[in-house]
Amino acid sequence: MQQLFSQVLGQRDLSRAGDLFSLHDTEIEDCLSQALDQIKTISCSPDYLTNDNDQAVVEICITRITTAIRETGSIERHSTALVGLWESCLEHNLTPQGENTEDTPHAKIASDITSCILQNYSCPSVMVLAVPVAVRFLQRGNKELSRNMSSYLSLAAIAKADLLAEHTEAITVSVLGARVLRSNWIELTLT
């Protein structure tokens, strides 16, 4: 892994995390999947929910990684690791509890990487990995994530409807249960 990424993630070094933006995208492109795997390990650790430092390091690193993926056009190369991290968020609470309306730490991760993944709705290899995970997010009770997923899935339905065909029932149940999608979504998925 690139030395600075290794230090920031290995030592959870928040003081150096901002320095990742001084690196050129091509300098770090080779290590992005490895960095995503390390972020997954950090975010799945038992103390992640209470460790503000680790959460801040993860947020900064995800922003740097998704930027590099977009700028280098390397989504296909890193989609497995990116979707793996995204999917790991489903193992955690995604819905704010009580009066707290702020996203949970794992909802923040999911939100941060959703657009990086689903903006590539016209790339079949990415969508094959992403659509089953996106559908599961629809059913997790986080309204903002559900809205974002539904918008991207609508685009995916237009670009590659067959990828969503096997998920029509789950999408329809989500639509009827949460009412997060516009009525034209139902028409798109059922035709």
Rank of each mutant, 00 (worst) to 15 (best):
111 S>W: 04
23 L>N: 10
44 C>P: 02
72 T>W: 07
30 D>L: 08
127 M>G: 14
27 E>F: 06
71 E>R: 15
148 N>M: 11
34 Q>K: 13
34 Q>P: 05
31 C>D: 15
85 L>I: 07
71 E>M: 14
41 T>G: 08
155 L>N: 07
73 G>L: 11
116 C>W: 01
142 N>W: 00
105 P>W: 00
154 S>L: 14
107 A>T: 03
49 L>M: 09
104 T>A: 09
81 A>L: 02
99 E>N: 13
126 V>P: 03
67 T>W: 13
120 N>G: 07
59 E>K: 10
99 E>H: 13
100 N>L: 10
150 S>M: 13
44 C>E: 10
130 A>C: 06
151 S>C: 09
26 T>Q: 12
33 S>M: 00
101 T>L: 14
17 A>T: 03
52 D>C: 10
45 S>N: 14
32 L>S: 04
146 S>V: 08
105 P>Y: 04
149 M>T: 05
129 L>P: 02
57 V>Y: 01
86 W>V: 01
126 V>E: 02
60 I>D: 12
94 L>Q: 05
28 I>D: 03
108 K>P: 03
93 N>F: 07
84 G>T: 09
92 H>T: 07
135 V>E: 01
95 T>W: 07
117 I>R: 00
50 T>D: 15
59 E>G: 08
151 S>R: 11
65 I>W: 09
29 E>Y: 08
75 I>N: 03
97 Q>I: 14
72 T>H: 01
48 Y>A: 04
94 L>N: 00
112 D>F: 05
